[in-house]
Design a protein around this nucleic acid. Sequence first.
DNA 1: TCACATATAGCTGTATACACCTAAGCTGTA
DNA 2: TACAGCTTAGGTGTATACAGCTATATGTGA
Lengths: 228, 228
Amino acid sequence: MNNLTLKQNPKSDIEEIQEVIRERICFLEYPPGTILKETLLATEFGVSRTPLREALNRLHHLGLIETRNGVGTVVVELSPQILSQIYEMRLELAVLIGKLTPNTITHEHEEISKRLLAETQKLHKSFDAHKYFQINHELNNLIQDIIGNVALKAMWKQLYSQAASTWYRIAKLDEEKVTLALIEELSDLCLALHRRDAEAVGYSQRIHINFGFVRVKRLLNIDNTSTT
Amino acid sequence: MNNLTLKQNPKSDIEEIQEVIRERICFLEYPPGTILKETLLATEFGVSRTPLREALNRLHHLGLIETRNGVGTVVVELSPQILSQIYEMRLELAVLIGKLTPNTITHEHEEISKRLLAETQKLHKSFDAHKYFQINHELNNLIQDIIGNVALKAMWKQLYSQAASTWYRIAKLDEEKVTLALIEELSDLCLALHRRDAEAVGYSQRIHINFGFVRVKRLLNIDNTSTT
DNA sequence: TCACATATAGCTGTATACACCTAAGCTGTA
DNA sequence: TACAGCTTAGGTGTATACAGCTATATGTGA
């Protein structure tokens, strides 16, 4: 665990490539529908197509891309229905953070959350989309670091990756409100971490995922007939 | 959906290879520690190493294998701790089956469960390990087919795959009890399906996963200090 | 001018050769 | 005989050539 960054250092080249492309998809650098060419990416990362294809294969398994023979590898656009299912799942997983043997919360976790809160407050004065994405991303890494159950952690990461780009696309439409919501979220988180209360972290996450879900539903006109 | 089989037909060759190897791992044909050679598998399936590596790569992502450079691809042996986390997660996911917009239960689902029950009752008279595995496998496919939330379904499948081989190894130690438990499980399931009650399916699954968890813990001497 | 068949550029899918890594076995020496 | 060092067989990791597929563009006839 590095100094206040929680950097996830990938071991192999392939994992590093995978992470870079994943972030590009999450951060809307590759918006849904973008067609990625293996040759171009391979030359960019300075490797041959073979290892690059392995990276893409893993991203395919994460549900982020789809490759069509003769065409290219396209960044998936999730249907409103699937996206809704993903959010419903995330709501359920959130409360499991504190339930399933969480990792011990450290002083460092608390410090990171404070830093992110401060950065978001600065963001409130002059909004910067990419900075907003970055903070969300680091926040998610922080949450992941508290999740002790490896299966839950993997699932949490995957669902975040799948939902991120849509959320960010929507967030840009209403900078003011989402920034305020993020400040509120981080405030809650700071309090929960200060109390070393993983359960509170989970419930806080649930609340704020639901905030996002409501806005996503509103903008995608999802008819919600499920019994939540 | 085929005639009372719920066959999952893979599209590409790679997916088919992946499924075959996955079943071999689940069914203990490749017990943990087995070293798989890419060349041998490639010749067996009549393809080159490239597509076979893609299949292995996906299995790696499912947490079933690990490949070490210069050595081979080894079937992972999950630590008792990780296995415990997987079971805890499965317990939580079970109740979500009925909660998160399940698929409509059909007459066919009911018929399959009846058939599996009948087969298990025959099994009770003369036990056959592989047959037992097969029934468990089909049962799991049946449950998957009821899960409507795609994220939950994917997670469910993955966790089953990871836990299966350990469970089967343990099941062989006490054929009598596990067969009776399976009969009970399928009886509950038949009833729930007859009522078209997905929630009951979920709770039934939870009960019987817990049955397995208890036995796994007993044999692996897991110290359970978590607050379930 | 439009519809349709065809040619083609460029992509992914696959096979294969080679580089690098690892572990086991062999050998020489104390 | 025991042990250290080296050799080597055989594995995975990577690069690359080629096969097959797809969408676009082009040309031709009505």
